[in-house]
Amino acid sequence: MAEALLSLRGVETHIGRYHILHGVELDVPQGGLTMLLGRNGAGKTTTLRTIMGLWRASAGAVRFEGRDITRLATADVARLGIAYVPESMAIFADLTVQENLVLAARSGPPRAERLDRIFARFPALRRFWTLPAGLLSGGQKQMLAVARAIIEPRRLLLIDEPTKGLAPAIIANMIDAFRELKDGDTTLLVVEQNFAFARRLGDTVTVMDDGRTVHHDTMDAFAADQALQQRLLGLSMDTHQ
C-alpha cells in the first residue's frame, strides 16, 4: 500500500458538551481515493471538519505529509493544498459562478487550461458564468462546489457526500470527474452514502461507527464481503444500488 498522505491517530473531537469522535484512526494513501463509510451519525462529517480545523481535535494527532496539522488554523490547513467540499456545498449564493471560482483560485486568476477542463466536465458553469450561484440547481451547485475545490492543483480533496440528492446523469459526471482527479496527482477522501458510487470509485475504504473507525480495507475486499457490509453498515452494497 502507498505511503499515507494523511493520517489520524487517536483523534477525539468534542462539539460543546458532546463527545463525537472517540479515537479515530485513519490512513489515506497517497494518490488514491479513500471512501469513508458509515451509518448516519457515525462521525464521518466531524472527521472531515476536524481534519480541516473547523472543529478542533481535543486529543490525538492529524498528520499531513508527515507534518502535525492538528493545531493549525483552517486557512493554514487549506494553504497546504487541502480542499474541502462540505455536504451543504457552501457555495457563495450572492456571488456569481465566476466570482466563486475567482475567489477559490487563491494564487491568482484561474488558469485558462484548468477552466477549459472544468467547463468540459461541467458545461453548465460556463453557461451560468455571470449568474448568482444561488440561482443554480442543486446539481449545478454541487458542480460549482467541486469546481471550486479543483480550480487550482490540490494535494488532497475532502468531499462530503457529493452525490446527495443528485440525478443519475450528474452522478455519472461526478464519477468521471473524480476518476480524472484520481488518475492525476490528487488524493481524495470521500464521505459517501451512495454505495454504488463508493464501490465504483473507491480504492480503499474505512468504516466508522459511533465516532470510531471500525474497519479498514481495500474496496474490492470490502465489496466482496456482504456479511461484513451487513454487520458494519446494516446493508450490503449489492442490495443498496
Binding site: 465566476q98 475567482v102 487550461e113 467547463f119
Partner: peptide
C-alpha cells in the same frame, strides 16, 4: 489528469464575459 504546467488566462473581472468554451 490536470496538467502540471498551464497557461494563465487574462485577469478575470468579476462581471466579465464567460471565457471561451
Amino acid at each position: 489528469m490536470m496538467p502540471a504546467t498551464e497557461t494563465t488566462s487574462p485577469p478575470l473581472r468579476p462581471s466579465g464575459a464567460p471565457p471561451h468554451a
